[in-house]
Amino acid sequence: MKQKPSSDNFSHLRWNPFLSLLWREIRRYLKVVFQTVMTPLVNSALYLLIFGVSLGSSIQLQSGIPYLAFLIPGLVMMACLNNAFQNASSSIVSGKFSGDVEDWKVVPLSPSQIVWALSFGGLIRGLMVAALTFLVGQVFMKVEIGEYLGIHSPMTLLFFLMIGGLAFAKIGLIAAFYAKTFDQMSAIGAFVITPLIFLGGVFFSLENLSEFWQNVSLYNPMLYFINGVRYAVLGQTDVPLVKSIVVSCLSLVAFHAAAYYSVKNGRFQRW
């Protein structure tokens, strides 16, 4: 008579499938490291050049900080969020197209493992691009202002980059499971993500907006991510730090729940 396999045969399924998928995600963008890491750097450098250097000289902030120094933390966070989002969404979209993600549903990967592997995969790419953006920003600082930009609180910086990166990878995942075509996917990027990030205060301070727009911006969760990073680097911000921490953490929880739901109930079938 055959025996049922005993349950201790399944302990290798606790971490290994997650680690494997995470490693796959990282390998995936390392294979095309030039597109995935270098291309966004060019964008950041252009922003620094146009806004930080050429327009920046005519912008006066009430706080007295040079505009270039104000801009760098915003661009660092934007790079992190954008790349985390990009990574998770393009991984799933291309996987849906090739039939790859169908595998994830068939192998012993749980929905949580899928969500976390993609979140960390996106986060790590986000952190890489963020770090490089910061370095490029430092070059601009040295050339334009003559000194490097110090980091007020490195732990706070890491905290916000992590929360933001994880949250945006999860948003990318949700969007990619929801999208039914490539076009829909890029529409979500263009109509939702980019405006949210741009209007979240990458380029401007709340104090420069009229009261109406200030109030509208307060409902954009990106404002808290970006201002959290700005506080971590500059030591001052438009939004109280505690509020930034609370809102960021709550959005992460909400995005995680939605991402879990998408994976659990989403379609893995091919396009």
Partner: peptide, 28 residues
């Protein structure tokens, strides 16, 4: 499970695909 339709796996080589797949089953 061997699906009816062929899967294309954009980025990886044959051996890499098998390694990842094995990892999904807990065998690193």
């Amino acid at each position: 499970y061997v699906p009816q339709e062929i899967v294309n796996h954009g980025y990886f080589s044959v051996e890499e695909i098998l390694k990842f797949h094995s990892g999904y089953f807990g065998r690193l």
